[in-house]
Design a binder for these strands. Sequence first.
DNA 1: ACCTGTCAAGTCTGG
DNA 2: CCAGACTTGACAGGT
Length: 334
Amino acid sequence: MIVRFGFVAMSTQLENASPSRTMTMASFAKLDDREAGLRRLERISEENLRNTLRLLKHCKYMGVKVYRLTSKLIPLATHEALADWSPYETLAPAFAEVGEFAKENGMRLSFHPDHFTVLSTPREEVLVKSVIDLEHHVRMLELMGLDERALCNIHVGGSYGDKDSAGKRFLANFASMPERIRRRITLENDDKTFNAAETLAISEEAGAPMVLDIHHHQVNNAGESPESLWPRIVRTWSRFSPEQAGEKSLPPKIHVSSPKSASDPRGHADYVELEPLLRFLLAVSDETPALDVMIEAKKKDDALLKLMEDLRETERKGGPVRVLDGASIEIAGG
DNA sequence: ACCTGTCAAGTCTGG
DNA sequence: CCAGACTTGACAGGT
């Protein structure tokens, strides 16, 4: 099994390279000249995209092929008060440049719209905003010229005291969205509400690939092992399998992080513990030829580099791991 | 240069 | 029913 590691949004190593500079609505509203304010938002967005490109160059240098874009590339992009503003035409060249670089270097890019995007909601206004937010994310992927392998990962959402009907509402709302959006979505198990088995059932029904978060599973499960769900999880990715997608195939993806502490087991630690991750990878390596692992640690790319060091150490000691380059490994089996 | 409070969002809990 | 917690990086304003 070939495993590629990636990280989220920002680097601890690059200075002054935030891809998510913003402006608050409060300060925007204070400006005398609204048009000038909109131009300023566009300039901030261009700076965010420039820094995203710098981050991708940093990824290339580290051998990283998996990277999650920040959702905050365009400040206030979906704010109600700016509904008449469309920054997309202005930013198209900057988006295209980012997408070109990613494609040239075989990088897998994704988004993770934050947890305010909830398709299980019973509130119409929340659903409308959620769909607008997804539309926004998909539009950015399209401006980057990325095909349907570039995906937006979301959670199922709240349960509102009745998880079963919340799940059904999710499915109905999901089905009501345009195919262009639906085909860009993956579903992730969360750490409080929809656990891995529940998310998997909804993924299968919706026809959306499932991203397994093994840390969330650890703190929210029904007693089953993640390995026991794995064959079904892999099947949710079948439209991206080499048999079906050929050149445009895409490995399943998992998320990994480690508990911050015993008192805060759901919080994310600075770094990732190798042992539990390695145990999972070994358990699934026979049946999985390729896998992408998104590292969700506080120390971002630094955590990725430390994990790679730990893996090199494992290899030196004769463990079932071969480090291929800066950020990928081959593991026994598969 | 640094520190503290605020901002965005939606859900859920405690009072 | 309403206020506050939760989460996160970064702004905003004060020192």
